[in-house]
Lab assay of single mutants.
Amino acid sequence: SEEWVEIALRLLELGREANINGTILNLHKEEIEELIRRLLKRI
Rank of each mutant, 00 (worst) to 15 (best):
S1M: 13
E2N: 14
E2F: 11
E2G: 13
E3R: 12
E3M: 11
E3Y: 09
W4L: 11
W4I: 12
W4A: 02
W4P: 00
W4S: 01
W4T: 01
W4C: 10
W4M: 05
V5D: 04
V5K: 05
V5R: 05
V5N: 03
V5Y: 11
V5H: 08
V5I: 09
E6Q: 10
E6T: 06
E6R: 08
E6P: 03
E6M: 15
E6L: 07
I7K: 01
I7Q: 03
I7C: 15
I7L: 06
A8Q: 03
A8Y: 11
L9G: 01
L9D: 02
R10E: 08
R10Y: 12
R10H: 06
R10M: 13
R10A: 09
L11N: 00
L11V: 07
L11K: 00
L11Q: 00
L11M: 02
L11H: 01
L11A: 01
L11G: 00
L12M: 04
L12Y: 04
L12N: 01
L12E: 01
L12S: 02
E13K: 03
E13Y: 04
E13I: 11
E13L: 12
E13P: 02
E13R: 06
E13D: 09
L14F: 05
L14H: 01
L14K: 01
G15N: 03
G15I: 15
G15M: 15
G15K: 04
G15F: 15
G15D: 02
R16Q: 05
R16W: 06
R16I: 12
R16G: 02
R16A: 03
E17P: 09
E17I: 09
E17Q: 13
A18S: 07
A18Q: 08
A18P: 03
A18I: 14
A18R: 00
N19G: 10
N19V: 14
N19W: 15
N19A: 13
N19M: 13
N19D: 06
I20L: 09
I20R: 13
I20M: 06
I20N: 11
I20Y: 08
I20F: 09
I20V: 13
N21S: 07
N21G: 11
N21F: 14
N21I: 09
N21A: 03
G22C: 04
G22R: 03
T23Y: 13
T23V: 10
T23K: 07
T23L: 12
T23R: 01
T23F: 15
T23S: 11
T23N: 11
T23W: 10
I24Q: 07
I24D: 13
I24G: 09
N26F: 12
N26V: 13
N26E: 12
N26L: 14
N26D: 13
N26S: 07
L27G: 07
L27P: 05
L27M: 11
L27R: 10
L27V: 10
H28W: 14
H28S: 10
H28R: 06
H28K: 03
H28I: 15
K29Q: 11
E30D: 12
E30P: 04
E30G: 07
E31A: 10
E31V: 10
E31F: 13
E31P: 05
E31R: 04
E31Y: 07
I32M: 07
I32Y: 03
I32V: 08
I32G: 00
I32E: 00
I32R: 01
I32N: 00
E33C: 15
E33I: 15
E34H: 09
E34N: 09
E34I: 05
E34L: 09
E34V: 07
E34Q: 05
E34Y: 01
L35W: 08
L35A: 03
L35N: 02
L35T: 01
L35H: 01
I36G: 05
I36E: 00
I36W: 07
R37T: 13
R37D: 06
R37L: 12
R37F: 10
R37G: 03
R37Y: 10
R38E: 10
R38L: 08
R38A: 05
R38Q: 08
R38Y: 11
L39Y: 05
L39T: 01
L39R: 00
L40M: 06
L40P: 00
L40S: 01
L40Q: 01
L40E: 02
K41D: 15
K41V: 12
K41S: 10
K41Y: 09
K41H: 10
K41L: 05
R42V: 15
R42I: 15
R42E: 13
R42H: 14
R42A: 15
R42D: 10
I43E: 01
I43R: 01
I43M: 05
I43D: 02
